[in-house]
Nucleic acid binder design. Structure first.
Length: 508
RNA sequence: GCGGGCGUAAUUCAGUGGUAGAAUGCCAGCUUCCCAAGCUGGACGUCAGGGGUUCGAAUCCCCUCGCCCGCUCCA
């Protein structure tokens, strides 16, 4: 198995117009990427395949396209504001980082006096969910100090670190150091991109760019039920950009601050949720394999109990083994009725569902298959990248599934004379009505084939001297380099059949 | 966020204080009846950006930005 080097792929993506660093002429900007002429076709094909397979082809799915900026209360309900912006404290000495709300300070007063005759103070910080938990390690450290400075007369005064006065913080000794004053003030880390709605900046018009598309679906649950004549079980699908500020961009486009999601919220009766979870978990895995992510690099991993979010009873990740490690492409989560319940609580609106047949009112449960469009695109690129050796030379091929290939076919006149260009261009024009195809008459045909291989074009159609005699053209298969003849008049249908999965004819 | 490495053409890279280079790719033409062939010609560089040292900086120093690696973080 050839080991893909990420550098080679990144370089190919740049060279062939798949992916560029964002605003590169200004030196780029960390965590943002642009899709070039090839990349935009690839990513669109992936999103279109997702939409077609999950919305168009199904009777129980509808689509939605929500605004990126929503009422900020949405994010209070979802827990993105408040719950996940814990203030953190860094230790300058040990470079460790602690959650400020889980740090308690134990102020001891030892009998030994200093030069001014004052007792010796030691403000020891400990970590834990409660003062009791934090005390354990601290007491051991205090016992050591007691040998030196004598036993303290009183038990220590315990203060949560967040409530320690700013002036007193320099007295605090961090959990893994003996030195005071190494801890920074508590700083909050912003999960979300903050902005202001309207020309004036003030606390009253703060808004956020959405960190996920899911909440727009929940917020529109009632609108869809009231207007789209849907009945449980049904799902709402959305493709769109999301933004996260807290992440550390890494690994090419894999982890970006601006990214695109393909999300489904599938609503069902509570007692059916478990079965639907299993259904989606398998269906989503099969979707990737059906588009060519066939190798052992694709994995389905169930979360164990500790890994589960508190509201979820089951979650699975679809992972891909990238050159930089195994990472998540999609998560399928059984979210129970958590989201709708939260939005009912925060909005005061009834988002329950009335089952007309069973005359029952209840809050639907939700299965959420949430996929990353950019991550899927990167996985398909990694999977497709192949280096074949032909006569001692490296042939670089992107072996995309025809459905996602940016260019479906290229049409060439074998040489630039004898009416071949005219004939080739006529076929090209005809194909172009249905497919994204390329035309090239420049230079040696071998070079033209290789150029298309590198862009992942699955088929090449070549017009040669025999075309004049019997009006047939050659089809050439990207992966095998095999060629066969097809009547020129049937070229469009022949390409359609191949793109629909008809196998390449075996060798003549 | 921390630490380390790096940044020269579209790509891969050479260039350690004295005229900005190579290969590949790209473009034009010739040739060419099938897989990066050959010949001729051509375009392409704010040497990441800014500041400093110097008669002179791609080269030395400082700052910023970006990329890579390892930590940290990643509901």
């Amino acid at each position: 198995m050839m080991e893909l080097e990420m550098d080679k792929l990144v370089s190919l993506c740049k060279r062939r117009g798949f992916i560029f660093p964002s605003s590169e002429v200004y030196g780029g900007i960390n965590g943002f990427w642009d899709y070039g002429p090839m990349g935009v076709e690839l990513k669109r094909n992936i999103k279109d395949a997702w939409w077609r397979d999950n919305v168009q082809m199904r009777d129980d799915m509808v689509g939605l396209d929500c605004s990126i900026i929503m009422n900020p209360k949405v994010w209070e309900a979802s827990g993105h504001v408040g719950g996940f912006s814990d203030p953190m404290v860094d230790c300058r000495a040990t470079k460790e980082r602690y959650r400020a709300d889980q740090m308690y300070v134990f102020a001891y007063l030892f009998p030994a006096t200093n030069a001014k005759g004052e007792p010796t103070e030691a403000w020891l910080a400990g970590l834990g969910g409660s003062p009791g938990e934090a005390a354990e390690a601290v007491e051991k450290r205090a016992a050591k100090l007691a040998k030196k400075f004598g036993k303290p007369a009183d038990p220590p005064v315990v203060t949560p670190y967040l409530e320690v006065a700013a002036d007193d913080r320099i007295k605090v000794i961090g959990p893994s150091t003996d030195e005071a004053g190494t801890l920074t003030e508590p700083r909050s880390f912003n999960l979300m991109f903050k902005t202001y709605v309207g020309a004036l900046e003030s606390e009253s018009n703060v808004a956020y760019l959405r960190p996920e598309t899911a909440q727009g679906i929940f917020a529109n649950f009632k609108n869809v039920v009231d207007t789209a004549r849907v009945k449980l079980p049904f799902g709402i699908a959305q493709v769109g950009k999301s933004f996260r500020n807290e992440i550390n961009p890494r690994n090419f486009t894999f982890r970006s601050r601006e990214f695109e999601q393909m999300e489904i919220e599938f609503f069902c009766r509570p007692e059916e949720a478990k079965d639907w979870y299993k259904y989606w978990r398998d269906a989503r895995f099969a979707w990737y394999t059906g588009l060519g992510l066939k190798s052992e690099k694709l994995r389905l991993r169930d979360h164990d109990a500790e890994e589960l979010a508190f509201y979820s009873t089951a979650t699975a990740d679809i992972e891909y083994s990238f050159p930089f490690g195994v990472s998540e492409l999609e998560g399928i989560a059984h979210r129970g009725d958590y989201d709708l319940t939260q939005h009912m609580k925060f909005s005061g609106k009834d988002l329950s569902y009335f089952d007309e047949e069973k005359k029952e009112r209840f809050t639907p449960h939700v299965i959420e298959p949430s996929a990353g469009a950019d991550r899927a695109t990167l996985a398909f690129l990694c999977e497709a990248y192949t280096e074949d050796e032909v006569g001692g030379e490296i042939r670089t091929v992107l072996k995309f599934h025809p459905r996602i290939a940016p260019v479906k076919a290229a049409v060439f006149p074998l040489v630039k004379r004898d009416g071949m260009p005219e004939k080739a261009e006529a076929i090209y024009r005809e194909l172009k009505r249905s497919y994204n195809v390329a035309y090239d008459e420049k230079g040696a045909v071998g070079r033209r084939y290789r150029r298309q291989d590198e862009a992942g074009t699955p088929f090449c159609i070549t017009i040669d001297s025999q075309t004049n005699a019997d009006d047939t053209v050659t089809f050439r298969d990207r992966d095998s380099c095999r060629q066969w003849r097809v009547p020129a008049a049937g070229a469009v249908q022949a390409l359609r059949d191949l793109l629909d999965g008809k196998p390449v004819p075996s060798a003549e």
